[in-house]
Structure formats: structure tokens, C-alpha cells
């Protein structure tokens, strides 16, 4: 048979072609034109189905060598309505029709053919990945912003420092402020002298600024406020707030350190876990403020 010239030996297509040939001769022998030369290929009749027509075309154009293996061709459907434009197209249609069993559709495309079918595949999945990543990034950003805002609110609730006459290492001149003057904000302890007493004892708030302790995340400075010789308040003059992480850490650490100082009335306090740098600097600045207070005559400090 002429099909053997275009197909390698052992190709399963050969057996399929031979079987189709036997079927054709047994059922539609009268309807298939035979005995024509390759260039006298006749268009299909109305009763000739696509497979028979493709097989006929393959047999007629078989003497011409096949340029490429059959598996590399695109599975284009063979249409019985119009003859193939070239002998090569006829061979393609024949091979395809012979490979495709009756009643089945074409196999799924792969490789370059798939790219033609779905041309923007890479861009589409890139857009999807970018969208999902953007969504996740925005969720993280919103959460981060919300946490930072909450931390800022917590830090804003901390007591503020009162003005002192001298700051830094000079120990001798603490500020002495009458408690009735509104220099201390509402968060600090302000004792108002009763008006019914003829000679009231006016408590004073003495403030001492500790040393500025530099850390790798920023400076830390503490202000101690004394009332009646005891530590009545601890304000933080400076703390690392250059980034959101520092703000969140210090929003948790500074209130804890303040409560510990007020409870211990000394610089013997524990560090806050996760805020080691701030805690150590806080304690150093606190100790320097206590030293200034002792030098100023406040001796009731542990």
C-alpha cells in the first residue's frame, strides 16, 4: 500500500489505516472514487464522510515524502465540505483522521499549540498572582497601621514630663513646683491644699531628668517626679519611636516599666521581655535621675 511510504514500520497508524481501508471496501466501495492520479483528486461526494475522504486523500498523495513526523502537526479537523489546499494538508488531514477514533474529539493541545489557544496564559497567571499578593500586602499593611495607631494611643496616654530648671547631669537644682499650679497634667498626682487649714502644707512636685541613654534604636530619657519625698510619677522624655516596630514594643514596655518603678520606688526593676534595649536604657536613665534626687536632698529612695 502507498501508506507505507509515509509511515515508519511498526507505526500503529498503519494497522488503523489498513483496517479503515478494509471497512471502506466492504461498505462504501461504490462511493469512493478510485483509480485517479494524485493531481486528479476529486472532491468528496455527499455520502463520503470525513474519515473516508481523509483516507482517500492520504492514499492519493502518499508518494510524496512526508516532511515531518505526524505527531508534530496541529490536529486540524478535516472538513468534507472543501478539498484540502495542498497535498501536504491532505496528508495531514488523513493522518489526523486515522489517528482519531470515531466518536472522539481531538486530544488536548500542548506546548506551542496550547500557547496559541491561550495566548496570554503567562500574563493572566501573573496578574492573578500579583492581585493575590497585593491583597495580602494590603491586609498586612492595614493590620500594621492599625497596630501602630493603637500603640501611639497607648504611648500618648503615658504621663508627660514637667519642666525642670536644670536637666542633664547637674544635680543641685531641681525644679520645685507648687502642686496647685497647673504645670502637671491630669495624669500626674496633684494634691490640692485644703482651703480650710489656716497654714496649709503645700506639697511640691520635684522633677529630675535622667541621663539620655543612647540605644541602637534611639535615645531613652526618663524623668522622675517626687512628691513628699517619694516617687510619684515616671515620665519618659524620649524613647525610640522612629519605626512602627519600636513604637509597638515601647507601647507595651514603657507602661510596664513605669508601674514597676512606682511599685518598687527604686531603680531595682525587672526588664520587659522583648524590650531589652529600652529596659536597660530606661533603668540607667532612671538610676541617674535617682542619683540627682539624692544629691538634692531626697533620701527616702530605696
Amino acid at each position: 500500500m502507498s501508506d507505507r511510504r509515509i509511515l515508519p514500520p511498526g507505526d500503529p497508524l498503519l494497522a488503523r489505516l489498513e483496517r479503515l481501508e478494509r471497512e471502506r471496501q466492504g461498505t462504501n466501495n461504490r462511493q469512493v472514487p478510485t483509480g485517479t492520479s494524485p493531481r486528479q483528486f476529486a472532491p468528496p461526494t455527499a455520502t463520503l464522510n470525513a474519515r473516508q475522504y481523509a483516507l482517500q486523500a492520504a492514499r492519493q498523495y502518499a508518494p510524496q515524502p512526508a516532511p515531518q513526523p505526524a505527531r508534530q502537526y496541529a490536529p486540524q479537523p478535516a472538513s468534507p465540505a472543501a478539498p484540502p489546499a495542498s497535498p501536504q494538508a491532505a496528508r495531514l488531514a488523513a493522518l489526523q483522521a486515522a489517528r482519531q477514533p470515531a466518536g472522539q474529539t481531538a486530544r488536548p493541545l500542548a506546548g506551542k499549540q496550547a500557547r496559541r489557544k491561550r495566548p496570554a496564559r503567562v500574563a493572566k497567571f501573573g496578574a492573578l498572582a500579583l492581585s493575590c499578593a497585593t491583597t495580602a500586602g494590603l491586609v498586612y499593611l492595614f493590620a500594621d497601621i492599625n497596630t501602630t495607631q493603637a500603640a501611639n494611643q497607648a504611648l500618648a496616654a503615658l504621663p508627660t514630663a514637667v519642666p525642670v530648671a536644670t536637666t542633664g547631669a547637674a544635680p543641685a537644682t531641681p525644679s520645685t513646683v507648687p502642686a496647685t499650679t497647673p504645670v502637671v497634667d491630669s495624669a500626674t498626682t496633684v494634691v490640692v491644699a485644703p482651703t480650710t487649714i489656716a497654714a496649709p502644707v503645700v506639697p511640691v512636685v520635684q522633677a529630675f531628668n535622667g541621663d539620655v541613654i543612647d540605644t541602637r534604636y534611639g535615645p531613652v530619657q526618663v524623668q522622675l517626679q517626687f512628691t513628699n519625698g517619694g516617687i510619684s510619677e515616671v515620665a519618659v522624655v524620649a524613647y525610640p519611636d522612629g519605626d512602627g516596630t519600636s513604637v509597638r514594643i515601647n507601647a507595651r514596655a514603657l507602661p510596664t516599666l513605669r508601674n514597676e518603678v512606682l511599685a518598687a520606688q527604686s531603680a531595682q526593676i525587672n526588664s520587659v521581655s522583648g524590650a531589652t534595649y529600652t529596659s536597660n536604657a530606661y533603668k540607667k536613665s532612671l538610676q541617674s535621675a535617682i542619683d540627682q534626687a539624692r544629691a538634692a536632698g531626697i533620701t527616702a529612695i530605696a
Binding site: 492581585s131 497585593t134 491583597t135 495580602a136 494590603l138 491586609v139 492595614f142 493590620a143 492599625n146
Partner: peptide
């Protein structure tokens, strides 16, 4: 859920 609402709305 509020964060996801905002993020998916923008995207």
C-alpha cells in the same frame, strides 16, 4: 474581615 474587605475592594 474588615482588612480583607478593604484590600479586595482596592484590588
Amino acid at each position: 474581615w474588615w482588612y480583607i474587605t478593604r484590600a479586595t475592594g482596592i484590588v
